[in-house]
Design a binder for these strands. Structure first.
Length: 856
DNA sequence: ACTAGCCACTTTTTT
DNA sequence: AGTGGCTAGT
């Protein structure tokens, strides 16, 4: 009898646990319930892997191994069985459940702080934590979730001294690295033509990713160049160590060294992290693999999630082999594939599959979905990048009319530089947007200066940062003095600041001694301020003590902007201090700044169009996705011309880009594009050719259609000579032209040059032709397609600006209705200030903004 | 020591 | 094309 009761309890317990996973499909469920031993989850794009990760952690914390175990902690009573049955049947926990049944539901439940989850970005870590918190309450916050880099910093902060680094070591960014490298080049008298510093830096980085020490590198140089790199690597490392600094790669490298050389430290972390999860495993490096394997070798509970088709960071040292060879690295590993996609329409998914199947060396999987076909993918052939930007804006406008929001739209591209034309267009048209990536806020000069001041207070050994600000504002401490100082410091093996303190003792510094002691005075003042004040007050005070504020106040041009930026920095210090409470520290803040990336601050709630690279878009999803620059030489990039491996990486990147889209995907290629200061004509990307034509509609820029009709006789523009592989574009152009011509509705439009002298036009506005084309396009679009662009551009521009008067009611495609407040003519255009009903006052450019006068 | 002007280089992607 | 770093001149 008792045995039957126990059996029933076990069955009910299993059912109950199952019930907590109701939203998972069978494969996802299996992944969430497989808690012991090595596990590889091959998760295709949009397969719900984040949900699985969360459910898996929740299952660990709430139930441990109860799902598969026959153990029961406590005595099974009829009451317990009844309560549990009731919970299973009703889906609700009855009174008494918590006290009587809950303790019997778990077998070896895992304490949340014994779980380590590694994510790719800080943002992903934050999201994981907050979703865990809503599932598990406080326990969710106790789970360790962070990036490799932040996890390593935390480990190193405890024990950096064992490696000969101060606990408050500085983290060097790329810019800092470059400066050190410059010194190294000077000291070793390396010719930077023979070996570009960038190349040396990246090769050194790759060595660190492979756990090759400077000694290893020096021991077996394959040729002179490698020998030289080894020497550079060695000196570079010594310099960083002397400065008490680590670069990004060092954070991983030194952590691995620390754990390898200190069994007690390793054991501590093996005990601490009993369950390890690694997301985006396809983008881990060799060093990261070793780190994971060392940590996991205690309990062997290692779960990695990834998609070999989404490996896009090889250039940064990621080795796709980690995921391909997981089963060899961790014997007995189970593998679970998640291939059902919940994100995209089947058209989009099929297109992604079309592209990626051209890669070799894949684990191989095919995503499928139960979502409908959806609309076809659109391929827009633009005349140039302005036309491309214009088309994006128009399409977004049309989507908004259908009820979509700005934030549902993402514009993706290969390189940050491609954001420019779109940005310009959006800014003028008043379309709200945000760029993710590009130059970071923290990369601004004034910010880096203030941070450098903060850094030398935290780490007096940081010579590099000292050099940055010792004469900023000017204190009559010049290059010669600094070089001598560096020499003395190097000779004595002490920091430059230490040399400054005794400047008078060194004859070489006699001339600058007074200025130097003035700086030391300032430095000591800073330290006192730091010791006695809250962090944000300290930074505010710092600006006064150092004279930095006075310097900016004196600068009429850029001073105010820069002070505003610094104001932002101070408020982020305040936010940090509020968040961390008594835990807040200067080093902690600097560390957060060093490791933060732009994507981390991306806020998906704010209703703006978002622009970013496809790399940055990894892990995100949007209803409407635009991928710009689908051209050979742009995407795939020119850099991978000679390497199949790199071409495959580009293709994976394309796969990532396509699979970001939920509802609609817009691809565009441009016939000509200004790139690196040159106008190029690229043929459409091979990735376009790889997509089944049945999945895609093609649309050609109106400007190109007109051109096509003009050159039809000579048949030059789309001859097979100029577009060898673009027969599809050629056909459809002719097709659409043919229709227009056949219907007699359209005649070749006059060129802009005919109605306005070409010389005058180009003098007034270099890209006048293209811009005029856009302006007209907008007009046509807003007149519901009834108007054909026909007027001369100069007139169109002038008349459009003049069409608005204060008091007019206008309709803006993005902001809706509004009243014109003010009209200000400017060179070639008109600023129209509008009070909108919903979004307040905005300024727009008449020629660019999607506005139309409304008769009342 | 500082400034102005010139040249060269940039850009593939980022923790 | 733009920026940043470097040189030469004051």
């Amino acid at each position: 009898m008792a045995q039957e009761m126990i059996q029933e309890f076990l069955q009910l317990r299993k059912a109950y646990i199952d019930q907590t996973l109701t939203r998972l499909n069978p494969m996802q469920r299996k992944a969430a319930l497989t808690t012991q031993g090595p596990l590889l989850i091959l998760a295709g794009a949009g397969s719900g892997k984040t949900t699985v990760l969360i459910q898996r952690i929740a299952n660990l914390v709430l139930f441990g191994q109860a799902y598969t175990s026959d153990k029961i902690y406590g005595t099974v009573t009829q009451q317990a069985v009844d309560l549990l049955r009731q919970a299973v049947q009703t889906g609700k926990e009855p009174a008494g459940f918590e006290e009587i049944v809950a303790p019997m539901l778990s077998v070896g439940a895992v304490r949340p702080w014994n779980v380590l989850a590694i994510t790719f970005t800080n943002k992903a870590a934050g999201e994981l934590k907050s979703r865990l918190e809503s599932r598990l309450g406080q326990a969710g916050q106790d789970v360790n979730a962070s990036t490799f880099h932040s996890a390593c910093v935390r480990i190193l902060r405890r024990d950096a001294e064992r490696l000969g680094f101060p606990k408050s070591f500085t983290i060097y960014d790329t810019d800092d690295q470059k400066r050190v490298m410059k010194d190294v080049y000077k000291e070793l008298m390396v010719d930077d033509k023979f070996l570009p510093p960038r190349s040396a830096m990246s090769q050194i980085g790759r060595m660190k990713d492979q756990l090759i020490s400077p000694k290893d590198a020096m021991a077996s140089p394959a040729d002179t160049k490698e020998g030289l790199i080894a020497k550079i690597y060695d000196l570079y490392s010594r310099k960083l160590k002397a400065a008490g600094a680590m670069d990004f790669d060092d954070l991983i490298y030194h952590t691995v060294c620390l754990l390898q050389d200190n069994p007690d430290v390793l054991e501590y972390y093996q005990q601490k992290f009993r369950y390890i999860l690694v997301d985006e495993y396809q983008d881990t490096s060799i060093a990261q693999f070793h780190l994971v394997r060392m940590l996991a070798s205690g309990h062997n509970n290692i779960c990695v999630v990834g998609d070999d088709d989404q490996s896009i960071y090889r250039f940064r040292g990621a080795t796709i082999e980690n995921i391909l060879n997981f089963e060899q690295h961790f014997p007995g590993a189970q593998v679970i594939r998640l291939e059902q996609n919940y994100r995209s329409t089947s058209h989009i998914l099929d297109a992604a599959n079309c592209v990626i199947k051209n890669n070799s060396g894949r684990k191989g999987k095919t995503l499928w979905t139960e979502n409908g076909q959806g609309e076809k993918i659109q391929h827009y052939v633009a005349e140039n990048e302005q036309d491309e930007a214009y088309h994006v804006a128009m399409t977004i406008g049309a989507n908004l009319k259908q009820g979509a929001h700005l934030k549902d739209h993402a514009i993706l591209y290969r390189m940050n530089a491609q954001s420019g034309p779109v940005e310009t267009y959006f800014a003028r048209a008043g379309i709200p947007y945000k760029i993710v990536g590009g130059q970071r806020f923290y990369d601004r000069k004034e910010i880096k200066d203030v941070l450098a001041y903060m850094a030398i207070v935290a780490n007096p050994r940081d010579d590099l940062r000292l050099r940055r600000i010792i004469n900023e504002p000017g204190r009559k401490i010049g290059g010669t003095t600094l070089d001598r100082m560096a020499e003395i410091a190097g000779g004595l093996g002490i920091s430059m600041l230490e040399v400054c303190r005794h400047a008078a003792d060194y004859p070489a510094l006699a001339r600058g001694a007074k200025a130097i002691s003035g700086f030391v005075e300032i430095y000591d003042q800073l330290c006192r301020a730091h010791d006695t004040m809250p962090l944000d007050t300290f930074v505010t005070e710092l600006l006064d003590i150092t004279g930095y504020k006075a310097m900016l106040n004196a600068d009429k041009e850029k001073g105010q902007d820069r002070l505003e930026n610094i104001g932002q920095l101070i408020s982020s210090v305040r936010t940090y201090a509020d968040q961390k409470g008594p835990e807040a520290s200067l080093a902690g803040f600097l560390e957060e700044v060093a490791l933060i990336s732009d994507i981390d601050s991306y806020d998906e709630e704010s209703d703006v169009v978002v622009l970013m690279t496809m790399h940055a878009a990894k892990g995100l999803e949007f209803d409407y996705v635009f991928i710009l620059g689908m051209e050979e030489g742009v995407f795939p990039s020119d850099m991978c011309r000679f390497s199949d491996e790199e071409l495959e990486e580009e293709r994976r990147l394309c796969y990532v880009g396509i699979t970001r889209a939920k509802k609609r995907l817009y691809l565009s290629s441009s016939q000509s594009r200004m790139i690196f200061g040159r106008t190029q004509r690229n043929r459409p990307s091979r990735f376009l050719d790889e997509i089944d034509p049945g999945l895609m509609d093609e649309e050609m820029s109106p400007a190109l259609q007109r051109q096509a009709s003009r050159s039809w006789g000579s048949n030059r523009l789309f001859s097979d000579d100029s577009y060898p592989t673009n027969s599809r574009a050629g056909r459809s152009t002719l097709g659409s032209y043919g229709q227009g011509f056949g219907g007699g509705a359209s005649r070749p439009q006059p060129t802009s040059g005919r109605t306005r002298p070409a010389a005058q036009q180009s003098a007034a506005r270099p890209a006048g032709g293209a811009q005029a084309g856009r302006t007209m396009g907008f007009g046509g679009g807003f007149a519901a397609g009834s108007q054909r662009p026909a007027a001369a551009p100069a007139q169109a521009a002038a008349s459009k600006g003049a069409a608005f008067q204060p008091g007019d009611t206008v309709d803006h495609k993005v902001f809706g209705r509004g009243k014109v407040l003010k009209v200000t003519p400017v060179a070639g255009d008109t600023i129209v200030e509008i009070q909108f009903d919903k979004v307040g006052v905005k300024k727009t450019m008449a020629n660019y903004a999607p506005i139309q006068k409304v008769e009342e």
